[in-house]
Design a protein around this nucleic acid. Sequence first.
RNA 1: CGGGGAUUGGCGCAGUUGGCUAGCGCGCUCGGUUUGGGACCGAGAGGUCGAAGGUUCGAGUCCUUUAUCCCCGACCA
Length: 416
Amino acid sequence: MRLSQLFTKTSKTVPADETSKNAQLLIKAGFVYKVMAGVYAYTPMGLRVLEKIKQIVREEMNAIGGQELIMSSLQRKDTWENTGRWDDVVVDIWFKSKLKDGTEVGFGWSHEEAIIEMVKQHLSSYKDLPIKVYQFQTKMRNELRAKSGIMRGREFVMKDMYSCSVNAEQHEAFYQATIEAYNRVFDRVGIGEDTYVTFASGGAFTQFSHEFQTICDAGEDVIYLHRGKNIAINEEVLDDETLSKLGIARDELEKVKSAEVGNIFNFGTQKSQDTDFAFTNEAGEKQFVHLGSYGIGITRLMGVVAEKFSDEKGLVWPASIAPATVYIARLGESEDTLKAADELYKELTDKNLDVLYDDRALRPGEKFADADLMGIPYRVVISDKTVAAGNYELKARTSAEASMVSRAELLKTLGI
RNA sequence: CGGGGAUUGGCGCAGUUGGCUAGCGCGCUCGGUUUGGGACCGAGAGGUCGAAGGUUCGAGUCCUUUAUCCCCGACCA
């Protein structure tokens, strides 16, 4: 992407009332645009980050047998009445509307019931199981109070996966596989170190559900860490009974603020019974499906990374989800420099590297400031000086000093 | 939903006890000088003060209603 073509611009200031760090940085860098409280649009730069995160999640979900699909945002009232969750008293975050003929519809805040309804059409025998499906969907939730920038919105992107199993054993195996897949996702996104599988309040079927909590001051949760055992307990379930069940002493725990980036639920057969979601087993008997639900907040994940990785100059994206791997800052407009920069841009782009090419007629300081603010992992300077010397000036976003490197060294550092 | 704060050119802000043509910085346009960490000089464009109503000779400044935004709390199955 040539920056001269990019319609978004960086800004030195942010709306004064936007105090959340992730929103400040993302707005300044031009990655998101605030439409209204809790509702953000993603610009080309922001979208790139989202898509990188989604691709990582997609690869890991596919690796454990997930099949991607996409449900609808508009949902039928009937879908939710069977489980008693259409009522605003039961679920107080519904956005609802009506068709022209008066038929009530809801905007999906979750897709559990909707997915079940669909999968039901394709399930009749135990031979059809297990089924694991997932989607990336925009969820609509009429939150009383949106907050923390993109970390808690009224409209946000979530990856939600659902597993349908023949029995508890099959369910449990997939549940464990998902925990491992989630850990790989968070490792790849760059927050693995600070993300803990956390015991939290469960549903009717199990004592605990598992959340994936990332240490983050902007988070809304409080968890107690056991670094040695690499597990955590949500404040809401911390009591003596839980501690003894997990074999942990209270004084071994460390209290931290955290953000929930993922969660997984075991529904057992409760919801299947509510929705008559069943199949026929070997003996010809009707059996209810064992259901699991697994979520990762994609936009929240982006917000958490923005919160955690930044400095006084701006964002610092982990390479795996950066909107571009390298920022080419061209200094000067001389023929040779133009040619050298254009060539490098073409070469890297041809090798499928995501490149931001700053071809604008701006002063060096502005280009450097933008490269830093946008948090691009590497910055390459091409100027009359470097062209004359036949090398490149390379600087990592995380290091203070730049160094002069040869073409070979440059390509090697960029991984091509 | 309870409490607190805010709303003035695109953005960030200032506008004293109501008083004449509403200012400043950034950004933008034009001209010139510059060119390795957000340059400088000069000349411009751009707002009717969130909205509605009221008090007053006179309202950005006071009153009422209302909308929106932010923060704290509650809520987050």
